[in-house]
Amino acid sequence: MKFTTLVSATALAVASTAFVGSAQARDQVQIAGSSTVLPYASIVAEAFGENTDFPTPVVESGGSSAGLKKFCTGVGENTIDIANASRAIREKEIKACAEAGVKDIIEVRIGYDGIVFASQKDGPAFNEFTQVQWFNALSPKVLKDGQIVDNPYTKWSEVDASLPDAEIAAFIPGTKHGTREVFEEKVLAVGCEESGALKAMIDGGMSEDDAEDACIAVRTDGKSVDIDGDYTETLARIDSNPNGVGVFGLAFYENNTDKLKVATMAGVAPSTETIAAGEYPVSRPLFFYIKKAHIGVIPGLKEYAQFFVSDEIAGPDGPLAQYGLVSDPELAATQASIEAEETMGN
């Protein structure tokens, strides 16, 4: 008797939960993550709403790490379906996801994005940069006369005579942005190695890991400012500081060519062509991650992913390329992997 009461009570509870659940059934895809991917995702979401019978997906911004954290809170209708990221998901995040029950994740690479170094249009002539110059300007410890010393430079012209005689004022993305990681890897770390600082640090008795960490450190005396907001904030900072040099996405620069001028990096000017050809050194792939458990539960999820990577949208003549995305030459493989719902690690 008691057992049946318990069972029926449980059944009632489950039924009412199911009812509540169905009452809130969500019919649109929910996406969150990188503010770099947001413009592309919003363009696709809008076109998806226009061209299909599914409602327009909702895309939140907030940064790659914040988006992946949200993605990894669990499976269910009140969690997001897709996380946009301007960097690949980290091992740590995959583990956190698995602990919360998000086990099958589909990784989709949508294309490439260039990171450009731009300054005020009428400001000093910052036209050519190299990674070594950026490393020497921003690192707290640099190699000078064969010695590792505290960074003595206050002006770009002291870093390299070819640069303008202007105070160093760099505006770089904050650590919550995926862009920061690319900046560290492709600019600071490369500059560290090329300038010989890495070798000098290891020779000076540092372990290789410590030396690599020291390479991507950024000076904290105010010459370099972390921007935690979006590129518009960087633009505002540069607008008010003629000597400022900022780190932007290529698409953002292309929308603001009236205010900004862009510099070459290691002799290559940033453009969709040079990035696609792999000549421009500071570029990175953009991703989104799908919760496989939500496919079939949230209507339009798989269709959205397929629509996103279709040739008409993500191809070289599509609206994304027009906005500034460098389309992925291996798009066909991505399309096939979404079709087969291939998850990571398989």
Binding site: Q28, L38, A45, E46, P55, V59
Partner: peptide, 13 residues
Amino acid sequence: LLLIGMVGFIASN
């Protein structure tokens, strides 16, 4: 509203 997901490309419908 930033934290409860109301900022972004949301108000499209």
